[in-house]
């Protein structure tokens, strides 16, 4: 007679503890996901500070300087879009890893065309606000500067992109994923074309 309520009480305690543990687990998963998510823009932001320094050093030494000693990429240019107050250091390589730190210059052997790619939700988030006619300034590692003006935008599947082989004026293309606001990976890319002035 006495034992029965005790058993019932124990079951009730377990019944209370288990969902609580699950719910706390849910909170922990949520927090760790958020931390992982927050790391990405944080890394992107910190890297740009280091890259900025490395770029200034590169300018002085007239040769690429690694931003941190284990980096397998080097700064090659700085692009800025004065209207939106954007200034970023561009990395060599075009690889996914470099893109976590900054826009990357795609390896092309065509001297008249430069193609840069960056993530739509970090470095190239400004592409949303970019407009036809905006001026983009590019400073190369040798100190040489070149201004480009955006002539138009193009939306294209990643595997259906082409650039003119012999344009009348040097071209700059900034590419990022499209649609700019989406959270899932998709096949479309937004390309902003700019012509040298």
């Amino acid at each position: 007679m006495i034992a029965l309520p005790a058993v019932r009480k124990g079951r009730r305690a377990l019944g209370r503890a288990l969902p609580n543990t699950l719910l706390i687990g849910l909170c922990i998963i949520g927090l760790s996901l958020m931390a992982r998510g927050a790391m990405i823009p944080a890394k992107a932001w910190v890297a740009q500070i280091l890259l900025d320094r490395a770029f200034d050093k590169s300018l002085l030494q007239h040769k690429p300087v690694k931003p941190w000693f284990w980096a397998d990429t080097v700064p090659v240019a700085r692009i800025s879009l004065p209207r939106l107050g954007v200034s970023q250091v561009v990395l060599s390589g075009g690889s996914g890893q470099a893109m976590a730190f900054g826009p990357t210059l795609m390896p092309l052997r065509n001297p008249h065309v430069s193609i840069m790619a960056a993530h739509r939700d970090t470095h190239f988030a400004f592409m949303k606000q970019a407009r036809k006619g905006d001026v983009i300034e590019v400073q190369f590692i040798d100190g040489q500067k070149q201004a480009y003006r955006i002539t138009g935008f193009q939306i294209v599947r990643w595997d259906h992109f082409a650039y003119p082989r012999d344009p009348a004026r040097p071209l700059l293309a900034l590419t990022t994923c499209y649609p700019v606001g989406a959270t899932e990976h998709g096949p479309l890319r937004l390309v902003a074309w700019a012509e040298a002035q």
Partner: peptide
Amino acid sequence: AEAMDLPQTATGY
């Protein structure tokens, strides 16, 4: 013109 593949450019953070 020259065809080229564009890289994946979204972190989805």
